[in-house]
Design a protein around this nucleic acid. Sequence first.
DNA 1: ACGTTAATGCAACTAAGTTGTAAAATTAAA
DNA 2: TTTAATTTTACAACTTAGTTGCATTAACGT
Lengths: 125, 125
Amino acid sequence: MGIVRKTASVKFVLSIFEEREKAVSVVALVKLLKEKMNKTTVYRILDRLEQDGIIHSFLGKDGLRWYAKCQGCSADHHLDVHPHFQCKDCGDVECLPVDVLIPSVENRQVDSAEIMLVGKCGNCL
Amino acid sequence: MGIVRKTASVKFVLSIFEEREKAVSVVALVKLLKEKMNKTTVYRILDRLEQDGIIHSFLGKDGLRWYAKCQGCSADHHLDVHPHFQCKDCGDVECLPVDVLIPSVENRQVDSAEIMLVGKCGNCL
DNA sequence: ACGTTAATGCAACTAAGTTGTAAAATTAAA
DNA sequence: TTTAATTTTACAACTTAGTTGCATTAACGT
Ligand SMILES: [Mn+2]
Ligand SMILES: [Mn+2]
Ligand SMILES: [Zn+2]
Ligand SMILES: [Zn+2]
């Protein structure tokens, strides 16, 4: 079970993801919301929104956690099996709307794949 | 410039990678070497061995750094563009000796790709 | 309006990784 | 073999992301 009560904090975090296309790191969110809410609250709201299939998360190239809007996921099924791209100059992260086939590996059961592409974005080229 | 002097600590870390097939996390190494050397030393030796193309590193599913032997890399060129597999039951991590084609993305320059497959290993199935 | 209980704030904590520096170890030269 | 230059190490202190416990606050069904 994720979000049960639509508090002011929850609404505010949701509005950030509604307005934004690109992914955002938890670190940036905590900084951005410093005046509005406690960092523990940010972490917990993100947890709940992810459980509900409203946002999804992944690790950037430095091991920090990033979040982005989901496209048609639900509490039961996260379908966000797309790769992500991080610019090594500006640090921006984007979801790549590309279907990726999870490679199979002999003698192992592969359940998910995290694919992180690193390079330079259009702005930084 | 990586390793310049073959100290006892360097030799010991090297011997671990010579004996071992699978990847090993820094956390595990620090624990393993607790009696032999300081954790700062572990981190710095790993840095230097990676610079020299003797080992390569990547992030596991929890954002921890893992290291594994290189196969024919040099100080100039790291060729380890293979995917990695982590078992979600036992946590073991392996290099997958599979060539992977780095997908190109419109309007962006992709320099490297980290592909992390997560599932169950042969032992845990 | 009230009562239940989810959500929040706060402080303290954990754990990975980094940094500065004095002491120790390696290596090459004398 | 001794010396001296320089790398490497230990240690302690620090930084930062993320977590936990608990008392207080706020949402919402009745
Ligand atoms: Mn995404
Ligand atoms: Mn590898
Ligand atoms: Zn950029
Ligand atoms: Zn396993």
